[in-house]
Write a protein that binds this DNA or RNA. Structure first.
Lengths: 184, 184
DNA sequence: CGACGGCTTGATAAGCGTCAACTGAGGTGG
DNA sequence: CCACCTCAGTTGACGCTTATCAAGCCGTCG
């Protein structure tokens, strides 16, 4: 499921999927992480690439693109929900653009963690523990920074007592402060 | 029309509109430039802010949000087109994220110009001349760089003979080379 | 036990933001 | 009609953040 063109639509049922684009020189930009419940492959025929990934055997629900389009014709209400999903994705994308533009490593990481926490909270109930099934490299490609800086920044936040680094994730110790940093 | 909440939907008919978000500290991120034909205000109730701007008296077509939603109920086909518009916006946003992430001023500016050229070409026929009705500050806020760097980079490109800076715009002298720079 | 991959950490250099001075065009008032 | 003001854009000097390169660490797996 590595680098297939979009001839199908997916829904994540468990785990986490990263969606990315490749640059001509081989580098990549992770354009989003899909959590359980999220749609994937909404964009039309554009050259989008995906990669299923990580976290306790990710599972997805796959629907042929053609079938999906027919389904929409029959149930106009479905289109509504798909559209809402797209709009929310656009919303997140805009937030992300804000992050990427105003570049301060600490801010980016903090905002990333806070945002992810909220998204997880909407699914599971756990609050303080934020799972990070993706690798440091993925986070870097998502936030537009090098793997080294991701690591450094995380350890700095840990040293300040704001977070605690645990296997495959992070435990937020001081959410108010983290939120504060995220806004700077 | 400065900083109004989204209680209406717009279509640009002439000129250029910039859409942006504000950060808590007052800085802003321009999330997109809307050219004639583009939609604005698709996102639901989110706190989005807009600003109409520049270029020979911009004009927009305004439709009350409520009326627009009712219209969609009656004509399901309309939702289809709106959705396509949203998906395209998402597409552009993803491209933008790529730009913002892989930070090299020259690359960003080049890609920005090439992309804008294509969008203009789809409307008018002129090719080499790329109008830039927005200010340098806007470009900076869009590409995530300071106004100084925008200016510097443009003059550098001009010195290299790739572009020619003209009032309210840029003339592309060496498109292949510019495209090449944009990919790096 | 040894090797590999993901992560951390350090030293160095470079790109870009910041601050600030300067230029030139457009507009206003004497 | 010209002097003056203002604002957008340009340019220069300097320092900070972050990328880059490279070494070391630790867990997992063969």
């Amino acid at each position: 499921m590595e680098g297939q063109p979009t001839d199908a639509v997916f829904t994540v049922t468990a785990g986490l999927v990263r969606a990315f684009r490749l640059l001509p020189d081989g580098r990549r930009q992770v354009v989003g992480f899909a959590l359980p419940g999220d749609f994937l492959g909404l964009p039309r025929d554009a050259v989008h690439m995906f990669s299923a990934d990580a976290a306790g055997h990710t599972t997805v629900c796959r629907v042929a693109r053609r079938a999906f389009l027919e389904l929409i014709d029959e149930h106009p209400d479905l289109l509504r929900r798909v559209h809402e999903s797209a709009v929310r994705a656009l919303d997140i994308a805009h937030d992300q653009m804000m992050l990427l533009g105003h570049r301060r490593a600490k801010t980016k990481i903090a905002a990333f963690l806070v945002g992810l926490r909220e998204r997880w909270a909407r699914i599971r109930s756990a609050t303080a523990l934020v799972p990070l099934p993706m690798g440091r490299q993925d986070i870097g490609d998502y936030l537009g920074m090098s793997i080294s800086t991701v690591s450094r920044t995380l350890t700095n936040l840990a040293r300040e007592g704001v977070i605690l680094i645990v296997p495959n994730g992070v435990r937020i110790l001081d959410l108010p402060r983290l939120t504060e940093i995220a806004k700077a």
